[in-house]
Write a protein that binds this DNA or RNA. Sequence first.
DNA 1: ATCATTGCAAAAGCTTTGCATAAGA
DNA 2: TCTTATGCAAAGCTTTTGCAATGAT
Lengths: 159, 159
Amino acid sequence: MSSAKKNVDKPVAGDLGEELEAFRKYLKNHGFRVTREREAIAESILRNHEHFDVDELFMSLRSKKPISKASIYRAIPLMIQSGLLAEVYLEDGHMHYEKVYGRELHSHLRCLNCRRVLEFSAPELAQVEKRICRQEGFKSVGNKFEIWGYCSNCQDEKK
Amino acid sequence: MSSAKKNVDKPVAGDLGEELEAFRKYLKNHGFRVTREREAIAESILRNHEHFDVDELFMSLRSKKPISKASIYRAIPLMIQSGLLAEVYLEDGHMHYEKVYGRELHSHLRCLNCRRVLEFSAPELAQVEKRICRQEGFKSVGNKFEIWGYCSNCQDEKK
DNA sequence: ATCATTGCAAAAGCTTTGCATAAGA
DNA sequence: TCTTATGCAAAGCTTTTGCAATGAT
């Protein structure tokens, strides 16, 4: 998926820097500090994690820059408020997150039988979002749409 | 909201019986037993709780028919699978549920600043759901749409 | 008469928090 | 230098689970 040479010496490449910059700006504007930990977390997400949970993030940071889970948990609300992340769903007793920044959020089909989650995209949702926000005077940071039921393999389970 | 006389002697009135019946049928078809506890839980939800969490349900059952939280937790997956309920969001560290049966599911606007949740309805979502399900061969039981951001009172917080 | 379900209490996790230390600004 | 952030470990919570007793079929 990634090319052999990845310029690991340049930690922030291309437009990833822009997104990181937006996060830094958010922190400064709100009186939070820009720390290496917060940068490492945000960078890891921007680079590697469309979809993740706290433990995955913790493990993947472990090799480069170990960061305590407490700090990860403390960074998450900041990243959500800055529009970088969204909570997507609770599964197996813990929360899963999804990168929002610079990406159309995916929607999910969840099978109640096999628990699989399929992604799909539905461009109309952007219009619905726009209309509702205009109506309600709401400033949107992100959205999600989810359908649950039975996937094609599990239809028989639903008698 | 409710009229003075409510016929409390007839525990299941009107079309509520139909919905309860559907739940009973689900249980039987899947080899689960129809117990008083499950009936009391389902009835309470159908009658009183558009929106609730486990503790609220526990408290409201307490007076009529006390049921342990363990049993409530064990009943919830059954009610979700039968199409009676949906998980709607995790807030303050616990899950909130919403009645689905016989009701168009509401969608939510969540303010990241004041944490308020506003409801809205968007009929187009039903069409999106239909189309996606046809495309994917998915049998839907319910859906939810959520937008997060800043409500009209909290726009200034997002600098 | 079986065997699933209930209730209780204990266990299991995930997430949060207190406090001393480290490090942004 | 002054505060805020981090890490560690303990505490807090909701949710799950084991087991004996109960109850549905």
